[in-house]
């Protein structure tokens, strides 16, 4: 993937209004891999008694990260949309900590891109959530 394409992918993600609303930042994107961070924010809390971030915010992060990984793949599509996404929640993210999602687009066919993703907080060895999804491959022409 060219540096130019990386730049375009990064710009594309950062112009997404909802990605901005959730304060997402791309920290790495190349060749079918993307890492996006989401800082802790009280507005995203799902359980006010514990201050734990809502699973839905983690889902949005995973979905965006998965799409970014697809866009950055060497056989990169011109565009992509999620077909389906499954998310497994292993444990609650620790309140106050940034959530980091990493997604890998591990296979691309003419029409479908397959993605796996993991989300962690400061404890990188114990995932908060994992995800698997299929995305559309939209070709130019």
């Amino acid at each position: 993937m060219t540096a130019d394409k990386t730049r375009i992918a990064r710009q594309f993600i950062e112009t997404i209004p909802h990605a901005r609303a959730l304060g997402m930042t791309i920290t790495e994107i190349s060749d079918g891999f993307a890492r996006i961070e989401m800082a802790y924010d009280e507005r995203f809390v799902g359980d006010p008694q514990t201050g734990v971030i809502h699973g839905g915010a983690v889902s949005a992060l995973m979905d965006t990260c998965g799409g970014a990984a697809v866009m950055s793949h060497p056989e990169a599509p011109a565009g992509t949309a999620t077909i389906d996404l499954r998310i497994d929640y292993m444990r609650a993210a620790v309140p106050g900590q940034t959530i980091v999602a990493e997604a890998t687009c591990y296979h691309v066919t003419r029409s479908v891109a397959f993605v796996r993703a993991t989300a962690t907080d400061d404890d990188r060895d114990r995932p908060v959530a994992t995800a698997a999804g299929a995305f559309t491959v939209e070709r130019n022409s």
């Binding site: 997404i16 909802h18 839905g56 949005a60 979905d63």
Partner: peptide, 15 residues
């Protein structure tokens, strides 16, 4: 989620 269509973010729909 997609400002060009425009369309609601898939993560929002999931949430």
């Amino acid at each position: 989620g997609n400002p060009f269509l425009p369309a609601i973010h898939g993560g929002v729909t999931a949430a």
